[in-house]
């Protein structure tokens, strides 16, 4: 090998990473953890994903402060969940062309909720679940479509890296479709089994996996109060459920009282915010395991 070819080889080896570094990372702002996870998986090292909501706030009812909104305005892409999830975006100005509505592909299939009851929990104050059901990603087939929307936006932004994004998307899709398959299979074990859920966030999951699910408006970290217990009694009379699905670990007191009603408790976390342990995938796998106990 001549000295010249060695030099060229050296240049090649050193220039490659330099070339990659020269391209600036794009900054992505998201509105919840699932989208953050999808964006990170698809974008890999090419993107810098920021989800600025504090972890103790439900991002669906979060209102960023002005400085944070300006950060959003400056982002290269703003990944929204859509389906009326991020209500704050209606009051603020965001660059339309950099906003990605990930649920746009299935906007005709969104579930509209008639009831409009306000309740209160957490630091975000009163809120209501009226309007459109927004926990779209608990239908994993929809989660796949949301991931695809992210992939498309990334590819438009960094067309040179489409292949990377495409490979990453395939890997993510594989995981999501695996979850979807598991849920689908599991749901056929006990078709039509009556279930209750503590919070009205499982509409898309119930629809996709044929769950006979009725939802109340309870918080896992608080006693729902006597009127809610009475309401549950009435509900299970007509809808004999043996399980209640919680978004988080409920109070032992509530678990005990439910047990007295012959209702067992199980957690299916929507994973709004970044979990303390694991990631979206591991949380969902745990969810499915939990569901396995119900649908075995």
């Amino acid at each position: 090998m001549s000295i010249r070819s060695v030099l060229i080889l050296f240049l090649f080896i050193f220039a490659m990473p330099l070339q990659g570094m020269a391209e600036k990372k794009i900054t992505i702002y998201t509105v919840n953890y699932p989208l953050t996870y999808f964006a990170e998986r698809i974008g890999g090292d090419l993107v810098n994903v920021v989800f600025p909501a504090p972890s103790n706030v439900d991002p669906a009812f979060w209102m960023p402060d002005k400085a944070t909104i300006r950060e959003y305005q400056k982002a290269d892409l703003i990944i929204l969940n859509g389906a009326g999830y991020e209500k704050w975006t209606k009051k603020v100005s965001l660059p339309m062309l950099r906003v990605v509505d990930t649920s746009k592909a299935f906007k005709d299939k969104l579930i509209h909720i008639e009831t409009d009851v306000t309740h209160s929990h957490g630091p975000s104050g009163d809120h209501s679940h009226g309007g459109t059901a927004f926990t779209t990603w608990l239908d994993f087939s929809q989660a796949v479509q949301q991931a695809e929307a992210i992939y498309k936006a990334f590819s438009r932004k960094l067309p040179a890296n489409t292949t990377d994004f495409s490979n990453n998307l395939e890997s993510l899709k594989k995981d999501l479709l695996e979850l979807d398959a598991q849920m689908t299979v599991m749901s056929t074990n006990k078709p039509g089994l009556s279930l209750v859920a503590s919070h009205p966030i499982y509409q898309y999951m119930a629809r996709r996996y044929n769950l006979n699910l009725k939802m109340v408006m309870w918080e896992p970290d608080a006693d729902p109060g006597e009127s809610e217990w009475k309401h549950l009694h009435e509900l299970v009379n007509a809808h004999p459920a043996g399980w209640m699905i919680w978004e988080e670990e409920p109070l032992p007191k509530s678990v005990k009282r439910l047990q007295d009603m012959n209702i067992k408790s199980q957690v299916f976390s929507p994973c709004f915010s970044k979990p303390q342990k694991g990631n979206f995938l591991s949380v969902m796998q745990q969810n499915i395991e939990n569901m396995g106990a119900i649908l075995k």
Binding site: K66, I69, R70, Q73, K90, K91, V92, S93
Partner: peptide
Amino acid sequence: GEKFVMLGQ
């Protein structure tokens, strides 16, 4: 100043 942030600006 900067871009508008909220409705009504």
